[in-house]
Design a protein around this nucleic acid. Structure first.
Length: 248
DNA sequence: TATATTTGACCGGC
DNA sequence: GCCGGTCAAATATA
């Protein structure tokens, strides 16, 4: 784990470094910048470096988590010898986390790929509540959840409650720079199969996080910081602080 | 055949 | 004991 932690720090540090360079670059409105090695670096290069930082960090975190519980090929937890009778299920903690946000919308679509895992009749509600988790939970360990409740005011509006944050790539805004063979990449568009994704947004894989479509470097920095906080909440970085990450 | 959805059962908080 | 959240087998769909 110590090795993974060091790897994670290095990877995130590189990402932060690239974000800062991108910030400088955008600030000077220059298409390129000379890096420490005297090489010309473009906005694309920096954005790609940041993306790689995220991807590698997630790989490190996933490799840490995979050691905790053995998983069978079918994706089920292998808890050892099971009784012949129905296997006891895990502990279902009723969520108390305040890491949630609510939206009211006329559509349940938000661009992300969600997988429905339950539906429940709720007391005093005419319409059932539907429970969704991120489709990429298995791949990225993405913990994002949402609950959809149709409002009863006849407006055809939905109250949508989101829990936790996506650790998978945002929809329609991400192209993995290492994705040389997209079929082998966890970010391959082929893994995004949710039919609810807006077909008008014809491609989940954009040219790259680059050019005019790039978020400002400041936003990248905020994203990195936000992800860091998420990892800390997970407990993955429980013994780390931001001081462990170097800012150049 | 693989993946997504449905739905009854299970579980813990209140 | 009730109720909301989750699991997982059965079923549907591409």
């Amino acid at each position: 784990m110590e090795k993974n932690k060091k790897q994670l720090i290095e990877t995130l540090s590189r990402g932060m470094d690239s974000a800062k360079k991108l910030q400088n670059l955008l600030h000077h409105k220059s298409p390129n910048i000379i890096n420490d090695d005297g090489l010309l670096v473009s906005v694309d290069d920096l954005a790609n470096e940041i993306s790689q930082s995220f991807y590698r960090s997630l790989l490190v975190l996933n490799s840490c988590n995979s050691g905790r519980l053995p998983v069978t090929a079918a994706g089920h937890l292998n808890s050892g010898d099971q009784p012949a009778v129905k296997r006891r299920r895990g502990s279902y903690k009723r969520r108390k986390t305040m890491d949630s946000r609510m939206e009211v919308s006329d559509t349940i679509e938000d661009g992300y790929a969600w997988r429905k895992y339950g539906q429940k009749e709720i007391l005093n509600y005419d319409f059932p509540r539907c429970y969704y988790r991120c489709t990429h939970k298995q791949v990225h360990g993405c913990k994002a959840l949402k609950q959809v409740q149709k409002l009863e005011d006849g407006s055809n509006m939905f109250q949508i409650l989101y829990f936790d944050h996506h650790t998978c790539p945002p929809p329609n805004t991400y192209s993995h720079p290492l994705d040389l063979d997209s079929k082998n990449s966890p970010y391959s568009p082929s893994t995004i199969t949710n039919k609810h994704i807006d077909p008008s947004q014809s491609c989940n894989k954009v040219s790259s996080v680059s050019g005019a479509q790039s978020p400002p470097a400041l936003a990248w920095k905020e994203i990195l910081l936000n992800e860091f906080e998420c990892f800390k909440k997970d407990g993955s970085l429980s013994d780390m602080s931001l001081d462990d990450i170097t800012f150049s």
